[in-house]
Design a protein around this nucleic acid. Sequence first.
DNA 1: TTCTAAAAAAATGTAGATATTTTTAAGGCA
DNA 2: TGCCTTAAAAATATCTACATTTTTTTAGAA
Lengths: 228, 228
Amino acid sequence: MEHPARQNLGVSAYARLKRDIIRGVYPAGEKLLMSHLKERYDLGTGPLREALSQLVAEHLVVAISQRGYRVAAMSVGELEDIYDARANLEGLIVELAIARGDDGWEAEILAKAHTLAKVMDLSGPEEMLDVWDRRHQVFHSAIAAGCGSRHLLQARESLLDQVERYRHLWLCETVFSSEALEQKRQEHAALVEVLLARDSSRASRMIREHLMSPVPIIRDVMKRRGLE
Amino acid sequence: MEHPARQNLGVSAYARLKRDIIRGVYPAGEKLLMSHLKERYDLGTGPLREALSQLVAEHLVVAISQRGYRVAAMSVGELEDIYDARANLEGLIVELAIARGDDGWEAEILAKAHTLAKVMDLSGPEEMLDVWDRRHQVFHSAIAAGCGSRHLLQARESLLDQVERYRHLWLCETVFSSEALEQKRQEHAALVEVLLARDSSRASRMIREHLMSPVPIIRDVMKRRGLE
DNA sequence: TTCTAAAAAAATGTAGATATTTTTAAGGCA
DNA sequence: TGCCTTAAAAATATCTACATTTTTTTAGAA
């Protein structure tokens, strides 16, 4: 008989904390009080400190010696830098993917693009956005996977984790109009076409623009909320 | 009066463990026994687990639930992927640096290149290699800094950390002939020239080749040591 | 108000309790 | 004997409770 494979508590603490930070449960810069975390997650300090250490390594949390932990700050400056870095890295990855991707890669892109395009058929507004976002991520990951480099994809993941708090701001604030959805769909369709045509420089430019487009919107949200 | 700013033990445990892993004190794949670590670093499990958690996030250590920690494996496959990823990322960063770097950037490069070129004047063989390596890193960092993106530089640092174990293999094994040194010096000089001329595509290609050159040597060392 | 000192709160570290895995040893069977 | 299974013992990982140290707050005095 197989046990349910007992995880150590640090791992689940890590997952839950990360999720809560990304979802904005703890605002940027907020002190993460050990006593509060112990109560909220019903855990001892040991596992919590393990989890926090990992989050420090991922730059989502900052540790100040003898003064505990804080949620990493957010700023418009960082917003712009993360998106810039992400756009450029993704551009590079797409170029490599076009040079290196095989038939399976093309097929995966088509499959994920199709799944993504079919989202609107679904039910409620909240849930639809959720599903759309998940499939959107999967679609872009399928494109990136073609570069074939575990370590470039790892760098990409790391930036995704760091951008997630800003992106969440966008998802929350955006009343997702069907025009915007339609707009995105067209961008994706155009992107797929250029990818399959293996037009490296055009694909790279397109993906960079595609990724940068939420920046002005998020910047506005931040300024409105006094997060600048 | 200022206190010496007491660090928590996890931080120094992290630094020492990382150093030892990179230096090959613990071979790839080796089990990191808590009892051994406690004795070696004279620390309790708490700080050690904090340090190990950070190293897990940096992919230098792997955690297996209820079975403790191991040094991350090494393989020729990973060697090739890290160097490939690094070369491509560095190529991208150089292109951005050329587009974005200002006069200060150019000046820094010239300064660091000069310091690097002057290393040979120094004393012993071991120490010289040490100094050379440090200045070499500084030189390349000065180039990369021009891209102006904290997050791209952070991704670069992360790859540097991960490649360090392989690079250390190279530094240890290489009896550093003055021809090789001379060869490197020429590559650097050529690189500086192209950078200052702002020849983006040539600089990118040159740096990619420059970074890839140790790969065959390291691959040989690994095969000889049965690390493949 | 501004400074100081006591009190409270918080972070950090260790020791030891608990749970899990690994090793060892013994027994059964071909 | 050789090999597998099983059970106990040892080693190990993990977690919590509490002790210690440091920071922050509070309250009183100048």
